[in-house]
């Protein structure tokens, strides 16, 4: 992201990445150097890019998470 571009002119993805990065830096960035923060920013970009890639696929409402969940029944043997 070019730092001198007004926020309203930036692509949505760059704005999203910057805000996520700001959140990570504010919550977890104490003591990190500028060089380390720059790497963290790159990894945040990876997170945002992955999200963007996944949203290129349209999912039906009925498309459920593909994971196993069995209600726990303390009376039944596992």
């Amino acid at each position: 992201m070019a730092p001198n571009v007004p926020e309203n002119d930036q692509p949505d993805k760059a704005i999203e990445a910057q805000r996520y990065f700001d959140l990570v830096r504010d919550l977890h960035g104490d003591g990190l150097t500028e060089a380390q923060l720059a790497i963290v920013r790159e990894r945040v970009d990876d997170v945002v890019n992955a999200g963007e890639m996944m949203r290129t696929v349209t999912l039906d409402n009925a498309e459920e998470p593909f994971s196993v969940f069995t209600p726990y029944d303390p009376g039944a043997a596992r």
Binding site: Y20, F21, L23, V24, L27, H28, G29, L32, Q36, L37, I39, V40, R41, E42, R43, V44, D46, V47, V48, A50, G51, M54, R55, V57, L59, E63, E64, P65, F66, S67
Partner: peptide
């Protein structure tokens, strides 16, 4: 420090990934 970026993964992205897995 690198993994700290993962705190930015939205829950919706994780669940979308699980849906796309199917």
């Amino acid at each position: 420090y690198q993994p700290l970026a993962r705190f930015a993964i939205p829950a919706t992205d994780y669940i979308r990934a699980l849906r796309l897995r199917g």
